[in-house]
Design a protein around this nucleic acid. Structure first.
Lengths: 332, 332
DNA sequence: CAGGATTTTGCAACAGGTTGCAAAAATCCT
DNA sequence: AGGATTTTTGCAACCTGTTGCAAAATCCTG
């Protein structure tokens, strides 16, 4: 039913090779032949079959886009950015939802069956040896927005989480907070420990150290229960640095439910600067991740990794910035 | 580099066909051969190349998942559900972001190049003739969550939007509201007009008719500007039925910014019941779409449509329910 | 155990392209 | 114009699997 190379070749009165070559950038075809072929192709509505060509070229332009953060609204923004950036680069995202109950290894072998050119992991909470499997299979991997283990040979793009933690500490101190807490994301994430390190370092310079709590996931609910626990365990804390905006919003609601007033009675600072943080009814002071740049760098890295795997092992760190809203009190 | 059928056949001492057959459900292979092949395959770590097999079978198990709602947090929930449901059905979502600036026809031809088995459109605001192209190319299409035109031959799964509009009207009237408004989503969406129809019908039974406004997109910002305009144009309206939760939240913030108090001073009812509607700081009364059922039905429909295109032209309507929270006043 | 029915197996063609190679055509140079 | 180059072209093999068909093997029955 669909038009094939053969059909076009016949119609244009040339060989299959000629047709193939007109559609292969950089191949040797004369202007005349190209014209004939293009005319015939247009007439017939021909469209090369990528899958068939992938057999010989080994390229599918398919990119596995893997995440397990489907409860964090921030990731809709991320997916938006990634799909656009990939589309612009002529790559196609094969989306994998790797939530807890799904079987990681099945998804893995699936991606290999589809011969993906590369894999982008957009999550900091995936099984540690996850990237390794791809890397071992010779498939370029880029971790965006944090990684869970030090898998060698993979590309990594994120903010400098230590610096982010440091920025949070400096900001809180600047606002006159002295009894502060760290309400991190899942403890297993490398991002969480880096942020904690930076946070502690920043506090230590002033002789302080934080209360520490962790949310079990990047979600409103997790933030809520974590803060409920935190308020109970450390009621004296005046301000918390939350590992993520959605966690911060959950935490904020939990605090309000306990009668705290923000920011007078309790300060909060988040991380990400998801769009929602700027909504009137949220107004979260937070640290912005430059998501568009992270995504752009990730796609760039994966493209280079596909072209030449040797270039891949690389780490890109981008700066983050404070976005002031209404959940921290003014300078004293 | 990767292990092929040939390698396994050699190792197991059988023909390529035998190997192929062991991996084809329902093919004729003796227990002995199957055992030999499976042993060899396991030893070598063989994994059939789906793309190669798609050449002869015509099946890729790839499903185009198309949307342009990447600013509506509700759609993260939808993507979560879709990716899981598709994964469970052994189908792979090729995600397409069809936001305004992207070229629709390019995405279209792309999906055809990849030989997708089917297409799921999760959006009610796409170009009207969109589905037609696929249908003409013999690719099954299912519209989930509304459709933008009456393309014949496509599957369609959604709530009964007229009924939803009616439910909103009945609810508002029940709460004693008399001067009510309709703040719909994009005017081009069929869902919007259906909801408006039902809403008007419900009001008419009580001799009422609504003020009418439309937001230009399914986003917080669009809701905000629409409500700002609406408050100006029709300040006497006591309660608005919003075409979507995120629009409702934007609208609510706009109203609050103008000094309205919710629900005393202005009532709001949304549609979707996205998770966020239940957050403490939102507490939106809304009409719930049974998203899991809509997704399940859509995936079911696309599977049937792949197996036998004749079954596809079908419309599934699911019931929606009121979820009471804090943006409508109590019964008078 | 013969003879027919049934199942299993391998061969070879095929799916839709790509590509190395050598022949053919075009171009260049003196 | 004639020969040396360079470019273009088609042939045929190949990429990885699938499948119709006929041969081979196995099973069953009397």
């Amino acid at each position: 039913m669909p038009i094939t190379l053969q059909d076009v070749a016949l119609r244009a009165g040339v060989s299959k090779s000629a047709v193939s070559r007109t559609f292969t950038p950089g191949a040797s075809v004369s202007a005349k032949t190209r014209a004939k072929v293009e005319a015939a192709a247009k007439e017939l509505g021909y469209m090369p079959n990528v899958l068939a060509s992938s057999l010989t070229t080994g390229r599918t332009a398919l990119i596995g886009l893997i995440s397990n953060n489907f409860t964090n609204p921030y990731f809709l923004e991320i997916f938006d950015l990634f799909t656009r950036a990939l589309q612009k680069a002529e790559l196609r995202p094969l989306l994998i939802n790797l939530s807890a109950e799904e079987d990681a290894s099945r998804s893995l072998s699936m991606l290999r069956q589809y011969n993906v050119d590369g894999v982008i992991v957009a999550s900091s909470t995936l099984p540690p040896d996850f990237a390794k499997v791809f890397h071992d299979a010779g498939i370029p991997v880029v971790h965006a927005f944090g990684w869970s283990s030090d898998t060698p040979g993979t590309g990594r793009v994120s903010i400098d989480n230590t610096e982010a933690g440091h920025l949070a500490a400096v900001t809180l101190i600047d606002r006159g907070y002295r009894r502060v807490g760290f309400l991190g994301g899942p403890q297993s994430a490398a991002t969480t420990s880096d942020r904690l390190d930076g946070f502690c370092a920043g506090l230590k310079a002033h002789g302080l150290s934080p209360e520490i709590q962790f949310a079990t996931a990047y979600s409103y609910e997790a933030g809520r229960v974590a803060m409920t626990r935190a308020l109970d365990a450390a009621p004296q804390v005046e301000a918390w640095f939350c590992g993520d905006d959605v966690i911060a919003i959950g935490a904020m609601d939990a605090a309000v439910a306990q009668g705290r007033r923000i920011p007078d009675n309790l300060g909060l600072i988040g991380l990400n600067d998801m769009r929602m943080a700027g909504w009137d009814r949220v107004g979260l002071t937070t640290i912005r991740q430059p998501a568009p740049q992270i995504v752009a760098a990730s796609v760039d890295l994966i493209r280079k990794g596909i072209a030449d795997p040797a270039t891949l092992p690389q780490r890109v760190l981008l700066p983050c910035t404070l976005v002031e809203r209404r959940t921290l009190r003014a300078k004293p």
